[in-house]
Design a protein around this nucleic acid. Structure first.
Lengths: 114, 114
DNA sequence: GTTACTAGTTACAAAAAGGTTACCATGGTA
DNA sequence: TACCATGGTAACCTTTTTGTAACTAGTAAC
């Protein structure tokens, strides 16, 4: 959680920062986007789908799991596989997620128009 | 704009990344939040309000201005003052902004409950 | 025995983000 | 004259983030 200097802590502006603290960065929202929209995915599938390195993905998945935003399940397959899924709590982010998808698409369109 | 490896570029997951590319980071959404909700603010006011350093604020404001998300106005006061305002385009972010404020507040509440 | 697949981890390097301090020019005030 | 405030900028440094390459362990196919 972000530490706030002087102002009241439940100020709207700092709430924005708190959200970014949990799901900011280059990859977390994209991982959630995939798991929420496509459903359960394996580690290796995410690597290929996203073009992310295993090291970074592993770290991001751990952090998301600690914040209860995804769940991890190890499967008894020949080479063991691990499945990641969105949790109920991660679904509380759908408004943020959808708004960002919408805005990103629109912004890219605007830029291409130039 | 983020460069995408192999997948189709208008994929929802990459749209999320595109949004983060423009308004991600520790400060940009907070600046927009303040300008959208409080209205026009001067440079020095933002520094005090946010607890951000002048160097970083200056950089962030420049980047937001380049993306047409804020406008800058130099005023003919005794020591010149500079006013920053949200633009019409920045208001297209209100959905993202409001969703993030709402989620951040709720998340902090959950954490305190533990 | 060798190769391959799985999901990671480790060590290392590079880049990006964020921060501190000192400084500038302007003009008003004590 | 010296000091204060304004909105910056430049040099420098630290921390965080991201990436690459090599390696692990278990099992199965060749």
């Amino acid at each position: 959680m972000v530490k706030h200097a002087k102002t009241e802590c439940d100020d709207a502006h700092f709430a924005v920062q708190d959200t970014l603290y949990v799901v900011g960065g280059k990859w977390k929202m994209m991982i959630l986007s995939i798991l929420v929209r496509f459903g359960t995915k394996r580690f290796g599938e995410l690597v290929k789908l996203m073009g992310i390195s295993a090291r970074i993905l592993s770290k991001e998945l751990n952090e998301l799991e600690q914040n209860k935003l995804i769940s991890r399940k190890v499967c008894n397959t020949k080479p063991i596989t691990v499945e990641y899924s969105a949790t109920a709590y991660s679904k509380s982010l759908h408004e943020v997620l959808n708004a960002m998808i919408k805005w990103g698409r629109n912004h890219k369109k605007k830029i291409r128009e130039k």
